[in-house]
Nucleic acid binder design. Structure first.
Lengths: 318, 318
DNA sequence: CCAATTAATACTCATTTCGAGTATATATAT
DNA sequence: ATATATATACTCGAAATGAGTATTAATTGG
């Protein structure tokens, strides 16, 4: 157990999320030629008191964001899932194995630093946006390919397992939270570019690929955020200080990738006491002006789990 | 970014949980004189493909458990929260900073390895067991001390924040999932031994202390398990292959630290299709024999989120 | 065999929450 | 004045929840 051999370096990656004109966006570092990457920096044990303070420190240096809310997602240490685009297998930071700790951060500030840009997260996960329709690619591309994946299993038992996973992920009853499960399934089935890259080959896949395992971290972030929405008032970290109820609904819909029933959404927000009117009104280009609301900080004290349980799938756009 | 300075070693700690005669128990390493510790081993990047496989490997070596279910909890890297009992501040594994990745593991095998023993988890968190009554120590010790903690805040604003935290953690409406929040509050308020030890002093506190930050990891494990219970059929990992419905209920109650309404519990289990009868019956010392049930693996396919939403606080013991 | 005890199991009922509507009111643009 | 877009109010049935009561089936001690 001599220390030298057990040594690794730790990368802190952040999925920094905002919502802009009804699109959830994530901050990426995009050099031309290479894949988009999440901003990440090394954990420096000499100067960082905690992992999170390390994250905040270099995010603060590289961008001007004050991260309103941060949450640790998961720590990945898989060999072979940290391959750079080139193919320089698993090496980085002078040969030490890299373990990456992923974070979710929410912000409403939207002035990006140089070298970085905001991109809609559905670029990376086009099958996750069900707001308008069930994405056509699911039936035209994904399900046929997954059918083949099931068929290619080594034996009947493995095939059954695969069939179940396919059904849970893309079958009846869309569960918007299973973002990571779906990504991992597509990875294993060879439907995303990272699968080929990690295997040392090359090949195309669905959605836009990301550096290292960053798309996996982003998938984890989306899943976590979609879940959290329902029992913690986290959306408000993404909203302007004052907003209309429809704007709030659109933000939630954007994140969840689902449409909600307007009247019920309002009922919920009102019952939970999540917001309070400001007395001011929006000035829309057309249509009746809506009252502007602000987040009622008080809920945090009163309610044990104030959130926006979405519940409703479907529901007219009305 | 020179590698040498960013290097840390990673410890994998596991809260291995079982349920025995209506008590949730956790496997601890107990040397005399030193605090109880969770079993932990180093992550070895040269031989472990993933963090989880590293964990399984050394758990398998040191104990004979097949961990039915494992789940990563959280990665802690706080300086000063990894202090051994002696006071050899923050040093371990040849001076490298230790980052610990905590895992929750569930098992039903109950034959402990040498040097280890099973201990009820309420030894470490006596305020978390509300099955019989609201623990008396909350009113007699905790709340008075927290009142003082609020009063000792530096200014009115800080006091208000503290008051809110106290209320959320120990006020009206017990939320059995906030195990970690409560432990952290007690830590900051100087009500647990680890607080003094990490500060280089000594002092007594509530419950039994553990080595390093292991009690924090255990708190995370309990919180996670209590939450998961409600939407995933994880209890069954802890049950014998056949069990009565009351045994199942007692196990859930033990984990949640709450009593449940018997009839409603059964209705739930039945409706969800979580179990199926075996046709055999228990042979109790006294009372009417109950049918033995087994877990219906099928649910995993059928239901999106089969679990045992507890809901009911209180409810007669009946 | 009887009573006391222990637990299983069946059924009821009011309340709350949910999902999906309809109806109406208030703006602007033309 | 009308079309359009939106806000807001209210209704209604279905399902889920929380808390019971009532009844049945077994064992044990007398």
């Amino acid at each position: 157990m001599s220390a030298k051999y057990n040594v690794v370096s730790i990368g802190l990656s952040a999925a920094i999320v905002a919502v802009e004109s009804e699109q959830p966006v994530v901050l990426v570092v995009a050099h031309d030629g290479s894949d988009d990457a999440l901003p990440f920096g090394p954990f420096d044990p000499a100067h960082h008191r905690t992992l999170e303070s390390g994250l905040r420190k270099w995010v603060g240096e590289q961008t001007r964001f004050d991260l309103g809310y941060t949450e640790q997602l998961y720590t990945f240490g898989d060999k072979g899932r940290h391959t750079p685009t080139g193919g320089d297998k698993g090496r980085q930071s002078g040969g030490a194995r890299v373990v990456s700790v992923g974070y979710l951060a929410l912000t409403r500030r939207v002035k990006e630093a140089p070298e970085t840009q905001w991109r809609g997260w559905y670029h990376y996960f086009p099958w996750e946006d069900w707001r308008d329709t069930r994405p056509a690619m699911i039936d035209s591309v994904i399900l046929p390919a997954l059918k083949k994946f099931v068929k290619d299993a080594l034996n009947a038992e493995a095939a059954e397992l695969r069939r179940e996973r396919v059904n849970v992920c893309f079958g009846e009853g869309w569960d918007e939270e299973r973002v990571l499960e779906r990504y991992e399934l597509l990875y294993e089935a060879g439907l995303v570019e990272e699968f080929y890259r990690d295997g040392g080959k090359s090949g195309a896949g669905l959605g836009t690929a990301m550096l290292f395992d960053h798309r996996r971290i982003l998938a984890t972030a989306i899943a976590r955020l979609r879940g959290k929405l329902k029992y913690r008032p986290v959306v408000f970290e993404l909203m302007a200080p004052a907003f209309t109820l429809l704007e709030l609904q659109r933000a939630v819909e954007a994140l969840a990738g689902l449409r909600l029933h307007k009247q019920n959404f309002r009922r919920l927000v009102a019952e939970q006491g999540l917001v309070e009117g400001t007395g001011k009104f929006s000035a829309p280009a057309r249509g009746r002006p809506a009252e502007l609301f602000r987040f009622r900080r008080g809920v945090l004290r009163e309610r044990p789990a104030p959130g926006l349980r979405l519940g409703s799938r479907r529901g007219k756009t009305s």
